[in-house]
Design a protein around this nucleic acid. Structure first.
Lengths: 113, 113
DNA sequence: CGGTATCCCTATTGATACTG
DNA sequence: CAGTATCAATAGGGATACCG
């Protein structure tokens, strides 16, 4: 685990994409709730505003982690799913999960769902 | 890997602490550059402003990931080091690193160091 | 050296209303 | 349903100057 340049460090490349208030949690929904998620699902599950969600989704799509698939026009229905690249985030999510499980007292979130 | 409440999800607890522009990268320095880092080291290595660094450092300290140790007053010298809890972030850092290594094209950082 | 104190700017977010 | 548009609030961050 040794990087050459800080700007091009693999950890930095990863966190540049995912390290904000929502991205990890959005990806989390795919691992926890199912491989296909719809806009409304995610919004309800996470409780963020549609513009913010739209924004993150586009970024994740652009980064090749999610893929959008529209399968109906008239009642507009689209679903997002993890790409192979997105699936490979499994170990990352697992590691975040494991650490969080070891320290249940950490953090300040207290509201239910 | 199944959580009960979203607000109290282990992943969320972890990302609540670490998921911002700098925290992962600060922790990264301890894994990559050495277990003890000083304020100036980190600032130079990462290129962030002192107030921002100070802020993150306090948060990481408060979260029990880093510990501050002042070992001189007159020429003021302090060093930060990972706690046991901080060391346990190893798998997280490794996973972030591994994913980043698999997808070297991802991200947009292009400047050198 | 190891920070704090200011000032300021911009990106992110939320709330809300609206559209195809 | 799946978003986009708009507006306002605020937190994050940079630059800089300063202090013990």
């Amino acid at each position: 685990m040794k990087s050459i340049s800080r700007a091009n460090c693999p950890i930095r490349r990863t966190t540049d994409i995912l390290s904000d208030q929502w991205s990890f949690l959005i990806v989390r929904e795919f691992f926890l709730e199912g491989r296909k998620r719809r806009f409304q699902d995610l919004q309800t599950e996470l409780g963020l505003s549609p513009n913010t969600l739209s924004n993150r989704l586009k970024r994740l799509e652009h980064s090749g982690i999610l893929e959008r698939r529209q399968y109906s026009d008239h009642p507009p229905r689209a679903e997002y799913h993890l790409t192979a690249k997105g699936e490979k985030l499994g170990p990352v999510m697992q590691a975040l999960y494991d650490w969080g499980m070891q320290y249940p007292d950490t953090g300040q979130a207290s509201e239910n769902d």
